[in-house]
Each structure stands twice: as C-alpha cells, then as structure tokens.
C-alpha cells in the first residue's frame, strides 16, 4: 500500500449509482421475502378487516370500520382482552423477576455453574407444542403433580379443568419454557458490567443489597428493558398451549387473544372479523412496547 489517497472517486455520482445497482442485486432476494412474507400479509389484514364476506350470497362488500365497531361491541372480544391483560400482568413481571434472580445466581462463577445453567436453559429447546403436551400430562387429575401434592398431604387440584386455575396453570407452563431464555440475555448483560464498578462500591462499603440496587440494576437497565419488551410481545402471542390444552376454556378463562383470532377465523369462519382482531392485537402490542420503552427511558433520565 503506497501513499495513494484512499478515496479518489473520479466520478462519484456514477460510482454511487453502480454501487446502488450492485447493492440492489444483493438485497433483492431478502427484500422480496420480507415484503411478500411480512409486509404484504400485514397490509392484507388491514384491507381485509375493512371488508365483509357474506356467506348468504357469497359477495364481499366494503364495510369500512364496520368490523371494528362490531368487535368493540362484542362481549366475547372484551372477555378475551380481559383474559389477555390479566395473563400479561401476571406473567411478564413474574418471568422477568425470576429470570433476573436466576441470572444473578447463575451468572456467577462457581464450580459446575455451566451445567446448572444448562439445566435451566434446557426447556428453551422444547417446542411450544411439546411443552404444552408435557404439561398437559403433568396437570392431569391422576398425573404426577397431583401425586406430589398428595404425598405432601394436599388435596388434588383440578388445574386445567378449573376456570380459576387454568390460566395460572398456563402461566407456570409458559414460564418454565421462557424464563431460561430471558435469563440468558440478562446473564449477557451482567457480564458486560465492568468489575471496577463493583470494586468501587465495595471500597465505599456498600452491602451486597446496596451493590445490587445501586450498581447492578442501573447498569442492567438496557438488557432489562429489552427483555421486558420482548417478553411482553411474546406473551401477547401465546397460542399453542391454549389450542392444544384448553381451547380457551373452561368458561373462556384461557381465551387469550391469539387463540380468539384463530377461533373466529376457523371455527366461526368469519375471516374478516378475525383480521380486524389481528389488527387490534398488533396495535395493542405495539402500543405496549412504546409505553414500556418510554417508561424505561424516563427512569434512566432521573
């Protein structure tokens, strides 16, 4: 490499244009896939949600916001929204707190920590349909959980067959799968905290609790925010365990929105109505994400 000037574009405009064309060749397949497989269906859902397909004469008519106003006056929709909100309000804090606790515990260095971490991490590998089936058997009236309760002298519980317990049974099952995954993000975040921060706090005589609240938590804010948002989005879309285990029941107590959409589209057969609910679900999800990001940023500025 001699002392030739690094950038001497003789005709910058032409070079840029030719780079643009080359870039397009490289980008085209991925862009095509993303537009056709993600954006197009999203746009279709929007269009389709403004239509009504009549089963009587087989015609499709434009109804504008008709499906949405019908949805807002549909008691089952609101019931599904309530179930989804209750589910979110319980499962998200629960999962993030347990994941944080596990990350602090298993992010340390001690003999065999990698092995114990792998055990907590293992349920990640279990596909949702498989975890649903496994826990469906664990929760059976004559299943192992009731056997353990029996050994402890506790009367058998109905779990999935009770409208009071079914949603919480799903929360336990989803947490078993999810917690190890979120823990990995938090461990990665913990390992990025420089040791000097802890050393400085130790010099100042901070107790373990003080170090956790004044060093670890503030420095873990970004990964925590990410985990909280990503976890919330994931939990808005829970589908497999509902479809395989409870079908929304008993008495609609596990009728999470994603399942409600599926039910409307395929059991009830009103696809346009279901699309309107998809749009509402995505809108709620995005709104929650925005609010959570705001809150997280707000806390950081204090």
């Amino acid at each position: 490499m001699t002392t030739s000037p690094p950038r001497t574009p003789p005709r910058p405009a032409r070079r840029r244009a030719s780079q643009g064309r080359t870039a397009l060749y490289f980008l085209a397949p991925a862009l095509l896939a993303l537009v056709v497989l993600r954006l197009l269906p999203a746009a279709m859902a929007l269009v389709s949600s403004a239509r009504h397909h009549s089963l009587v004469d087989g015609t499709t008519t434009f109804v504008g916001l008709g499906n949405y106003t019908d949805l807002l006056s549909d008691s089952q929709f609101w019931q599904s929204v309530r179930v989804t909100l209750l589910f979110s309000l319980v499962i998200n804090p629960l999962q993030v707190l347990i994941a944080l606790g596990l990350a602090v515990l298993l992010g340390r260095r001690f003999a065999g920590v990698r092995f114990w971490r792998s055990l907590v991490f293992a349920p990640i590998a279990v596909p949702p349909a498989v975890s649903a089936v496994i826990w469906g058997i664990l929760y059976r009236p004559e299943g192992p959980l009731n056997a353990i309760l029996g050994a402890l002298g506790i009367p058998p519980q109905p779990f999935l067959t009770s409208s009071e317990q079914a949603l919480f049974a799903l929360i336990v099952l989803m947490s078993w799968v999810g917690v190890g995954y979120w823990m990995m993000f938090l461990i990665a975040g913990l390992q990025d905290i420089p040791q000097e921060c802890y050393d400085a706090a130790a010099v100042d005589g901070a107790s373990a609790w003080q170090r956790f609240f004044h060093v670890t938590l503030p420095l873990l804010r970004r990964p925590l925010a990410f985990v909280l948002v990503a976890d919330t989005v994931a939990n808005f879309l829970v589908f497999a365990p509902v479809q395989l285990l409870t079908r929304g029941g008993p008495d609609g107590s596990t009728n999470l929105m994603m399942y409600d959409v599926f039910r409307r589209a395929y059991s009830v057969g009103d696809i346009n109505f279901a699309q309107a609910e998809v749009v509402v679900l995505v809108a709620i999800t995005l709104a929650v994400v925005v609010v959570q990001f705001r809150m997280m940023q707000g806390k950081g500025e204090e």
């Binding site: 840029r16 862009l31 954006l39 197009l40 269906p41 279709m44 989005v233 589908f239 699309q275 995505v282």
Partner: peptide
C-alpha cells in the same frame, strides 16, 4: 459495504418486518 440511495427505506422495511410478530400475520399469509 455499499453506500446508496434508499438505504434508509431498506432499513425501514427490515425494521418493520421485524416488529410485526409473525404469528399475528400468519392467518392473512
């Protein structure tokens, strides 16, 4: 590697496609 016009648009498409959860658009798709 490349600097070209429309990069911003490309990023927007990728970001958007990544913010719309797949399961939510599975039925229309």
């Amino acid at each position: 590697v490349f600097r070209f016009r429309g990069r911003g648009l490309v990023f927007a498409v990728i970001l958007l496609s990544f913010m719309i959860p797949f399961d939510a658009i599975a039925i229309p798709l």
